[in-house]
Nucleic acid binder design. Structure first.
Lengths: 343, 343
DNA sequence: CTGTTAGCGCATTCAT
DNA sequence: ATGAATGCGCTAACAG
């Protein structure tokens, strides 16, 4: 007698087998009841449902997805959960509510050498199929051949190759620099982002074209690498701000960089915005609580997320979809930018 | 020649079988190589590793978890992705980085009648075991008998029954009310949260005890239901603010409610803080960008998350752990509170 | 209407 | 050192 087998459901999970045994039917019958398939007597059906309720049984996502091709779950793949991706998540979440899909956000949390390629790995791990479709946040490589529909948000390689939702990086940079020009600044520095990322290249391009359009020749000494990081930006800013002819304004490629500039300025005894104007990019929640509050280019993060969901749902329905959505940015003027200082 | 078999990995996922075939070995051998078990010749090992790299093979989380008991993934279960849970996520993410675990955040996105019990259902779906342990955010029921370690963040039923991390709700409410008392307010109203939630009850208790300690008898007409929601709070606030003896200050049970109060005040032509002081609870990112910026009780959300991770990791290691962590709150004084108006 | 037989992709004995 | 067989929980064909 295999005594210990069915007796103690308290130990582990309740499986479909436990339900079948308790209801006195076979496993496939329970499966049919659960999946609302017909071919089950009404009496059997209610009895099974009763047992399911009693035992608190829930089908295992894992086992089901191994066998069946549809799970009703959308996957969001992010490198880690930081302000940028969590804001996207909010938009994704509200756009998904009521569609019948559930959400599964996955962070590989890769560090160092493993980092590049995280999106391929994560996608591969979840595919096959835990999820019916995926939204990949800031992938650094193209996700061309995947077995499920994939939408990329702000891909670092540009919009080639897959369905994409992104913000107007170049246009946003132009807005930022034009704002500074309008305030009278002419010596405007730029802390660029990671050279390998499309967004960084576009923001730099916007910076250059706005200056050129205003008849200003770009002074290459005023263009430094901030790498999208606060630390590195702070040290680059220190260099910049101790130049003989120091810039009166800095356009940083993202908010983290801008915060680094703010720190450097404070360390050097420069007041913002009286002595130095600073403009960032992204408008993460932290941007409004810096001292002074940061003027920055706002990306509609939540909307980026919801548009990605819409695109993905369209693809899931098998309908043709525009494979590229670009949203416009808006300049959020706060207190870190002001008129050029008179000397 | 079974030509179409191993040749086209582009079609679906690359499975362990594809690798085995390409490397000319059996599936178990590949499995051993991948899981770093010994019993494989060095030559075979490197050959298999080469093929794995070439094909970009990654073990399927799904298949592995069905068979093996450990997945190296921590699950975060949330009702949906809103500001509260995404802030927690950030703390969880940074605390998990470098531990070797990956993160899987799951939102059931239940609405209406299905809502209660979402945590049981989600846990059951992911258990068995996609995840090695779980952090459940604001569960409304006890998760006593689960097959994996579970930590609850801010459980709505109080700290009974499971490992818990929460903030000092009552103490925070006391701070908020004492702040208003210090500003000279005596007619202080309270918009309470959902009656069934422990946090709401504790905040109300703090409100009452702070008033009582100051020798003020609670005026029950000044205590209304806001249900933690902006809409309902706005309408309750409208009632409150049109009373003959209207309150000069409102302590709202959370920030959403406080924002509702702000709206109602504006609609009625009342200035904040000149005519009315408003204090919220939570300090979600939005609290700093309201007009005027909201004075509120700040919960250390990111730290709540990281402490939950620490607790969970301890449990996963099989060590004994204190099963209840309570973090203190701090009052964040911004501009929505001021001295009592003179009349 | 119900139960039997397969097999999803993988990890684990146990043979060889 | 390697491979054949088995089973995880579940669903899809079919057979009774």
């Amino acid at each position: 007698m295999d005594s210990a087998l069915g007796a103690r459901p308290g130990a582990g999970r309740v499986t479909i087998g436990d339900v079948a045994r308790a209801a006195g039917v076979s496993i496939p019958t329970v499966s049919k009841v659960i999946n609302q398939r017909d071919g089950v007597a009404a009496a059997t059906m209610t009895r099974v449902q009763q047992v399911v309720a009693d035992l608190g049984y829930e089908t295992s996502l894992v086992a089901r997805s191994l066998r069946s091709s549809r799970t009703g779950v959308l996957g969001i793949l992010v490198p880690e959960f930081e302000p940028f991706s969590t804001e996207l998540l909010r938009g994704i979440s509200s756009a998904t509510t009521g569609t019948g899909y559930e959400l599964l956000a996955y962070a590989g949390l890769m560090t160092g050498a493993d980092r590049p390629g995280w999106e391929r790995r994560s996608l591969s791990r979840l595919s096959g199929t835990l999820i019916d479709g995926a939204i990949v946040v800031t992938p650094t490589t193209a996700l061309s051949s995947s077995s499920i529909p994939v939408v990329a948000i702000d891909p670092h390689t540009g919009p080639e190759g897959h369905a994409t939702v992104d913000a107007d990086n170049e246009g946003g940079a132009v807005q930022a620099v034009e704002h500074l020009l309008a305030l009278g600044h002419t010596r405007i520095a730029h802390l660029r982002g990671r050279a390998d990322l499309a967004s960084a290249q576009l923001r730099e391009a916007g910076y250059r074209s706005a200056l050129t359009a205003a008849g200003i020749v770009v002074d290459e000494r005023l263009v430094r690498d901030g790498d999208y990081q606060e630390e590195q930006s702070a040290s680059a800013a220190r260099d910049l701000l101790t130049l003989v002819a120091r810039p009166t304004a800095v356009f940083a490629a993202n908010d983290s960089s801008a915060i680094g500039v703010l720190r450097a300025a404070t360390d050097l005894g420069l007041r913002v915005p009286e002595d130095l104007s600073v403009v960032g990019f992204d408008d993460v929640p932290q941007a409004s609580i810096t001292v002074p509050p940061l003027t920055t280019v706002s990306q509609p993060l939540a909307e980026l997320g919801s548009r990605a969901v819409e695109l993905l749902l369209t693809m899931l329905r098998g309908e043709a979809a525009t494979d590229h959505v670009r949203l416009s940015t808006t300049l959020r003027v706060r207190s870190s930018s002001g008129p050029v200082p008179r000397d």
